[in-house]
Design a protein around this nucleic acid. Sequence first.
DNA 1: TATATTTGCGTAATCAGTTACGTAATTAGT
DNA 2: ACTAATTACGTAACTGATTACGCAAATATA
Lengths: 317, 317
Amino acid sequence: MDFFEQTGKVAIGSRLRMLTDKVTEDAAKIYQLYEIDMQPKWFPVFYSLSKGAEVTITELAKNIGHSHPSVSKIISEMLKKGYVVERKDKLDGRRNVISLSSRGKEIYLKIDNQLIDVNAAIEELSNQTQNKLWEAISEWEFLLAQKTLLRRVMEKKKERDSLKVSVVDYTPAYKQAFRALNEEWISTYFEMEESDYKALDHPQEYILDKGGAILVALYDGEPLGVCALIKMNDGEYDFELAKMAVSPKAQGKNIGFILASAIIEKAKSLGASKIYLESNTILKPAINLYHKLGFQKIAGKPTPYARCNIQMELIIG
Amino acid sequence: MDFFEQTGKVAIGSRLRMLTDKVTEDAAKIYQLYEIDMQPKWFPVFYSLSKGAEVTITELAKNIGHSHPSVSKIISEMLKKGYVVERKDKLDGRRNVISLSSRGKEIYLKIDNQLIDVNAAIEELSNQTQNKLWEAISEWEFLLAQKTLLRRVMEKKKERDSLKVSVVDYTPAYKQAFRALNEEWISTYFEMEESDYKALDHPQEYILDKGGAILVALYDGEPLGVCALIKMNDGEYDFELAKMAVSPKAQGKNIGFILASAIIEKAKSLGASKIYLESNTILKPAINLYHKLGFQKIAGKPTPYARCNIQMELIIG
DNA sequence: TATATTTGCGTAATCAGTTACGTAATTAGT
DNA sequence: ACTAATTACGTAACTGATTACGCAAATATA
């Protein structure tokens, strides 16, 4: 298909379907050629039963990788043809135990010759190709089982998005964003508190002038994330990581990670050796992020925030 | 899938379908990830229209390799979303001319990033495989276009069947078969004539004793084909190839070809340099066979058979 | 110029799978 | 021992494709 050479590999799904259709269409004709009254879709079930064992619907489904309703339907069609017999399990009344009837076994013997020829034909076809389809499918199945295509695409997206994210130092131009981004998540999950207003309305006075820092993450020039380092004077910690906020619009763009990494670097450059933070366990993604960055949970410490139920620290190595 | 390693490549259709399903399932989720309100099946149509040209339903269908009703349905869905506009062709009232709406173009721009990521993901996946799926599909498409799977299997069947066919010299044990096989086809297409009875009832006297020969094709020991060489005394031809009959039961087993080839060999071994035959053009498979073996049509010659309307000869080189 | 054939395309039915859902039987948890 | 959860599996509805069919418009043919 010329078309697919144009679209590129994004259309691999469509292309696979077309090939699948072409192959299964011929499969039906091949059964006709051998005068075997059978449908291609029955084959996996037939094959599974050919070993002679009695199997339940669900076992069959698992075996051949179909859903159970699919097998259920196939079995009822095969029953009509008299190729299988069913039997209720006496020990477990839910189970429908299936096996090949003598008629079914007969048919399966007839199929034998066909299998030989089909195999030979495919083998010959395969020998004319550089790239082995069968093995390629096998490899794809394996790789997709390890990591789905969706997951792989998500990673690529994150990678590309990261490139568009830049982190810059706070300037008064971002005062509005600093407040809005924080207020957004705080008022979603909690209530704004006294200490919030102080810091958010006067970042210069309450954070920067006291020796702290604020970083802003820009995506396509738009400020979508903010984070502050607040100077602490308790003798143990140098800074508190606080007022971290990322817009929900920026979900999945890795901004949180980039921003937090940058703020840790900033702390390091300011000579910090220990950073403190407060959060709440209902903010799971945030906690995960802190954990990923090396923060460890610590025991309680007095805090002005009602919403805080977890405290963490990072020792800068 | 372990299952497919057991069944062998006959199940390649099933296996292809499973992979296809897995891939397209993720495709839908990928559109969601990029917050694009679009279905994977629309992609080929979208892509075709993205060049900006106005295209009819049928053109689209040919382009992307779908049936036209499929495209028709896709377009009506895309119309509902406002991604395309349709317009009746003024010069040809049957044609429904489709193009992307501005909304559709917008969406297509949004897709761009996604395409980049998906391509990158597939490329990366592909790099981890020994056998390239994309290229393998391409090769299969090419080879199947040249000769379908059905055709390939038919050839293999013929090959295998040929091995079961043996050709032996006539003995009185085959007298019954010689008559029955010939009567079967003659009375199906024509009427039995005087000369038929003579030869069929007395092969020893009318054929063998006069220096002719009869061969019998056995399939699994059963006589399913017969053919005779009748000595001619007209100075030009050595033998007439006649009384060739193959049971309809033996269709597709290549018996005709094997038998005729054997009888030509026999003629050669009897020192013949020119063979003659009479037939009728309604027996197309027979005429084709003779042609394949090198027989050429010749001009009329007197014949005792009413059913004869074509005469052929083979010059043995 | 009238009639037959071909073409474009929409609708309906079908197909091989799926998910959603309901029911009955079994097993687990307290 | 009784309720809750799980399991087996059948039915129904949906999905993305197909073929079959029919109508109307255009084109070819006599």
